[in-house]
């Protein structure tokens, strides 16, 4: 029972990080039909910001907001430089552009920083843990869950109360009509990238705080997982992205914890098999987007 509680906390922490990343992908996809594979590099930028802040002795309480800000600025710059010129291009054009951006950034990280993994200085408290009865919970896990909850509340408020957030939902549903309301394409698209950068930045801080290192390919695996989570939840649906992120986190952590030893090496295929199984029964994902398939202008 204790082990189960412990693993559930781990699953919430990992799933929450996937959920934030999947949300970032979904926000951009729902508005411009782009799956941004360079999303992971936003995480890496945040990770390196944390690393340099650590080297320069910047207090962690300052370096975290700086790292998140770096991802937001990088996301907005990415849109302005790489994606705006191909806006209105086919899905394939935008997808290939995102791969190009990802590769260029990876090569820059390798050549300008280091191809090898670099240590990131983290405050002591993150590696400590809290004893609740027989359950031992890492502070970094608690921080991850708390940060995820805060981000989800913030995003919910933003999308439902703020004029720009509502405009983003409107544009995701019917871009042409949103423009007829006077909603500028640049505003909502830049807004979507800024939100996705914010989510990637927070996810990066959580990711790094579990591992204390950063390397040029750091963002690749979590974003691949987030992409799977987004598909699992229903591509383009924000609620689906959150559900898919948590679902994938639970599948991974529970398999790692409860699968018999002799099956452990098949953990990944079994996990992905479960994903495929869910998609067989719900081909549009767990919470499909109602508007996918609408023509976007």
């Amino acid at each position: 029972m204790d082990l189960f509680v412990q693993q559930t906390v781990n699953a919430l922490a990992l799933g929450g990080t996937y959920a934030l990343l999947a949300l970032g992908l979904a926000v951009v996809f729902s508005i411009m039909g782009l799956i941004n594979f360079a999303h992971g590099e936003l995480m890496t930028i945040s990770g390196y910001t944390l690393m340099y802040c650590g080297i320069l002795g910047v207090p962690f309480a300052v370096s975290v907001p700086l790292a998140i800000l770096a991802a937001v600025l990088a996301a907005v710059a990415m849109e302005r430089i790489a994606f705006r010129p191909v806006r209105g291009g086919s899905g394939a054009t935008m997808l290939i552009t995102s791969f190009a951006v990802a590769m260029i950034l990876q090569v820059l990280f390798q050549n300008l920083i280091s191809a090898r993994s670099q240590a990131v200085a983290l405050p002591q408290i993150l590696s400590q843990s809290v004893h609740l009865g027989n359950v031992i919970i890492g502070v970094n896990k608690i921080a991850a869950i708390a940060a995820t909850v805060l981000m989800l509340i913030f995003l919910d408020r933003f999308m439902n109360r703020q004029k720009t957030g509502i405009a983003m939902r409107a544009a995701a549903e019917d871009f042409a009509v949103a423009r007829l309301m006077g909603i500028r394409a640049n505003t909502v698209i830049a807004g979507a990238f800024a939100i996705s950068g914010l989510l990637a930045g927070v996810a990066a801080v959580l990711w790094v705080s579990q591992r204390a290192s950063v390397d040029p390919l750091m963002g690749f695996t979590p974003v691949l997982k987030a992409f799977i989570a987004a598909i699992l939840g229903g591509l383009g649906s924000l609620r689906g992205a959150v559900a898919g992120g948590f679902m994938l986190g639970f599948i991974e952590v529970y398999l790692a914890a409860f699968l018999p030893q002799e099956f452990q090496e098949f953990r990944e295929p079994i996990g992905l098999g479960l994903v495929v199984l869910i998609l067989l029964f719900r081909p549009n994902g767990m919470i499909p987007s109602r508007f996918l398939g609408l023509i976007k202008v």
Binding site: K163, I166, A167, R169, A170, E173, D174, A176, V177, A178, R179, L180, M181, G182, I183, R184, A185, R290, F291
Partner: peptide, 29 residues
Amino acid sequence: ERLTPMGLTLAPEGRRVFGGLTVEENLRM
């Protein structure tokens, strides 16, 4: 989006209300 502030707009064919937004949010937009 430039014409709406000038006072020219269109209610498109097929209504095209934002179904996932409330009535109030549609009007706010």
